[in-house]
Amino acid sequence: MGGHFGHGHDVHDAAPVRGRALRLGIGGPVGSGKTALTAALCRALRDELDLAVVTNDIYTTEDADFLRREAVLSDDRITAVRTGACPHTAIRDDISANLDAVDALEARHPGLELVIIESGGDNLTALFSRGLADRQIFVLDVAGGDDVPRKGGLGVAAADLLVINKTDLAPFVGSDLDLMASDAARVRDGRPVVLNSLRTDPAATEIAHWVRAAVGAAHAAAS
């Protein structure tokens, strides 16, 4: 289970998971593929983990509706939160609407092991609050420019896992994947980076593996 992530690469304190689900934040800029990744993770993990999703829709309930339409989970496991035009506020400064949503999901599904909280799409400085997410994934896509990892930003530097997404598009947008990966490694102090393409790997195998390990580690720490 633990894989290579459970051995001190993660500098963050152990998550305070005891008798509740692990809360996994998925953040990143608009259009980087957070919702598609969330859907892929749900499909990959739903048969082995008791899981639910909170979406932070910035304007409509589109992300939640997408997940429902794709039928990755039953309706009662997907909750949309509105963010009052400030998506970063809802995951960082004032997490109460998200906490309410997580509480409601946990009350509805007492055995819940994983809650994925998908952010509304934000800038590079947006990080999930430790009061909301135990672990967080930051998603960049290659089409956003291969200089983004070099420029860094809190999300790129501090997320528990950085996903460089849509790698299949790299040749078309002229992005240098090796450069992105090495720039990211430089600012991330050894924390993992995954290159991902849902087109070539619809199951997001490596990311699902990381999530599995994170849930396993949290359970081990709690027991």
Binding site: V81, T83, G84, C86, T89, D93, D94, S96, A97
Partner: peptide, 12 residues
């Protein structure tokens, strides 16, 4: 207004 009590998501 920075009290983390969810007010930012309501417009009154």
């Amino acid at each position: 207004a920075r009290l983390p009590a969810g007010a930012h998501a309501h417009s009154g």
